[in-house]
């Protein structure tokens, strides 16, 4: 038996909204440590990795580790029926083929809605991601990151992220011209959430397909800050810290030959 209760259905809804454009079917692996999910897009360019630890839930029970294979679009249909502050309970039997989602309206305890989603058998490729030291880490407000990528995507299909000790520069070049946004490292004393934190041992410049970077911005509603971890010629690790877990992407770079 698996049963997990989230005090705010919106947390799970935002997670699923963040993956809907690139990832069709995903396995949500439930264990005594919480719920985790890892999925690669069909083109093998982006990988999403999510972990919601047990502390994220107001109650949590998982007698035996199970994998809940779910179609993201179907799951969203159900999650979108909920109010953001509904309490969500997810339940599955060990050998069942359904995930039950129960929504309780915190402002109207007389209303309870219940949905059953058919589980899928998803044959997923699993990747072994090596432990990596990143030589450049830029942490910035997620809304700023989202804005930069949205603005520059209009200029070109690929965006270069250039991290140096004193700042980070995002550049796009395309048929209509080019554009760049530079952010200087700052501390914004007293305004930690707005600061641009830069830790660079070695300057790094990596180019990415802007379509995939756009996908990694969709998680901005999940956390106020995002960190971009880079090292020469390897995938960027883009991570949003959740209250009890993380929501992250690995994105393969474009390399000049």
């Amino acid at each position: 038996m698996f049963e997990a209760k989230l005090n705010e259905a919106s947390v799970f809804k935002k997670i699923v909204e963040s993956v809907k454009d690139g990832f069709k079917n995903c396995n949500f692996d439930c264990s005594e440590e919480g719920i985790s999910m890892e999925s690669m897009d069909d083109a093998h360019i982006a990988l999403v990795s999510m972990k919601l630890g047990v502390e994220a839930f107001s109650s949590y029970r998982c007698d035996r580790s199970i994998s809940l294979g779910l179609n993201i679009e179907s799951l969203l249909k159900v999650l979108r029926t909920a109010n953001n502050n509904d309490v969500l309970t997810m339940r599955a039997e060990d050998d069942g083929d359904l995930l039950t989602l129960v929504f309780e309206d915190s402002s109207n305890p007389d209303r309870i809605s219940e949905y059953n989603l058919k589980l899928l058998n998803i044959d997923q490729e699993h990747m072994s991601i090596p432990e990596q030291e990143y030589t450049a880490t830029v942490t910035l407000p997620s809304s700023e990151y989202q804005r930069i990528i949205r603005d520059l995507t209009q200029l070109g299909d690929s965006i270069t992220i250039d991290a140096a000790k004193d700042g980070v520069r995002f550049t796009a070049e395309g048929d209509i011209g080019s554009g760049s946004v530079s952010l200087k490292a700052n501390t914004n004393v007293g305004e930690d959430e707005k600061s641009i934190d830069i830790a660079v041992e070695e300057p790094v410049a990596l180019g990415f397909n802007s379509k995939y970077l756009t996908q990694t911005c969709k998680a901005a509603p999940l956390a106020p800050r995002v960190s971009l971890n880079m090292c020469k010629r390897i995938p960027i690790f883009i991570s949003y810290k959740l209250q009890a877990g993380h929501f992250s992407f690995f994105l393969a770079p474009q390399i000049s030959e």
């Binding site: 690669m40 083109a43 093998h44 360019i45 982006a46 990988l47 490729e125 699993h126 990747m127 072994s128 991601i129 090596p130 690929s158 180019g207 397909n209 390897i234 995938p235 690995f250 393969a252 770079p253 474009q254 390399i255 000049s256 030959e257």
Partner: peptide, 14 residues
């Protein structure tokens, strides 16, 4: 010219 790499170029496929 630039080449789009794939995650498989970096990560081991289990």
């Amino acid at each position: 010219s630039t080449r789009q790499t794939l995650l498989k170029d970096f990560f081991l496929n289990l």
